[in-house]
Amino acid sequence: MEVTTKSMPYEAWKDNEYIEGLVEELRANGTNVLVGTLDKLINWGRSNSLWPLTFATSCCGIEFVSLGAARFDMARFGWEVARSSPRQADFMMVAGTIVNRMAPVFRRLYDQLAEPKYVIACGGCAISGGPFRKSYHVAKGIEDIVPVDVFVPGCPPCPEAMIYGIMQLSRKVKVERFFGGVNRQEKQKEFLADSPVAQKAEEIINGEQA
């Protein structure tokens, strides 16, 4: 099964192996015809209607504005309904540096997003800390804080790169399984096991609830 996209040849994509791996994983246990079709319908809806959260901390945010403007027009893909409330958004484009003071706020924003939620780390700062990596007040990449689906390198990435990144996310969404597949909450657990920072936060949250 090839994950096709309108007016973009399959060979033009990079990271096809990664998507194929996901497809393999999806196929591994076989699926019911009805459920499979429903899954496809749901994935079609989700992948074509990714609403971003208006979230930007620095330079990359301005390129995100350009992405919405007439020249690059992300509305073409159905991404233009940028929601200011995290409850209504589907993905978060982390455009800019996340610093120590912002990290808890950022994590809270992520927690406020409704499932299914995705994160795109956009630009050098979000990926690794970028030029500010050695600073005393900068998180060295957001991967310690939230699970990331797509990385878009650049400083800042040009809007074309952002479009490519969101399209890659859309491809990933297309091979998800809504019924009986890998549960996103399990993924969350895996992520927690890897990230000590998030682990600690989880403990605190659980502690508060108890």
Binding site: S58, V99, M102, F132, K134, S135, Y136, H137, V138
Partner: peptide, 13 residues
């Protein structure tokens, strides 16, 4: 300070 990146300190090195 939500985007304080410590540029002045970075410059010193």
């Amino acid at each position: 300070g939500y985007i304080h990146r410590g540029v002045e300190k970075l410059c010193e090195n």
